[in-house]
Amino acid sequence: MSHLLELEGVSKRFGGVQAVVDVDLYADSGEIVGVIGPNGAGKTTLFNVVTGFYAPDAGKMTFDGHNISGLKPNALTRLGMARTFQAVRLFNAMTVLENAMVGRHTRTRAGVWGALTRNRRTREEEAQITEEARKALSFFGNRLIGREDSLASDLAYADRRRLEIARAMVTGPKLLLLDEPAAGMNPAEKEELITQIGRLRDEYGYAIVLIEHDMPVIKGVCDRVAALDHGVKIAEGTYDEVASNTQVIEAYLGKAAAAQREGLA
């Protein structure tokens, strides 16, 4: 059986810049794949290509047995893909609960008629949406629950990141793409996040792909790590394999520093 998400030779170019070059990557249910790389390595662009925000210039992408290149983000969400954003992007004028409820959009159907008549089906559906949303919020203990009616813009930074994950969970995904979920968190919050991402894999069985700069987080949660540099995948394997890869060290520290480090070793 093929993988849940499978990329083959995916490329993306902006004008003269090759942002993603011929990248192969896969992810399966119940597995956490880390994507690392220095700033500007093309990680977020890769996410944007996978989630349909950009159309790839070349390459094959399949998800859950469907060819997904050229599909729009909303279609992908319906297929079971959900993501968070590097710069937290919540619906600021909506409440915490409403933010989460929006996530349920593709799994529900009420239309104009339902909204106007508020018939039994619509009411049941609303109740179910609320329940799903609360369930996702309660995943973060009492961090979000109890604040359902606050505006999203009033939340503390780490809670805003958590709400983004909760919102993604509500969509009922098979694959979760997290773009730097630990950015801006303090060490204690990162610890908590590491456990939670692990639980997302173990309890929910999601496949998770995450971009992260924070190496302890990558080390703490990832089953497999891929490293990008200048849009090219330069290494893939366990954390230790990738972390000791010369090319990766070079990418992060520059050639001279890498050589120096090698000399020291």
């Binding site: 469907h66 050229g70 599909l71 729009k72 279609a75 319906r78 297929l79």
Partner: peptide, 11 residues
């Protein structure tokens, strides 16, 4: 049905 919808999306 889903494949059909997916196909429609791509149109």
């Amino acid at each position: 049905a889903r494949s059909y919808r997916v196909l429609l999306e791509r149109l």
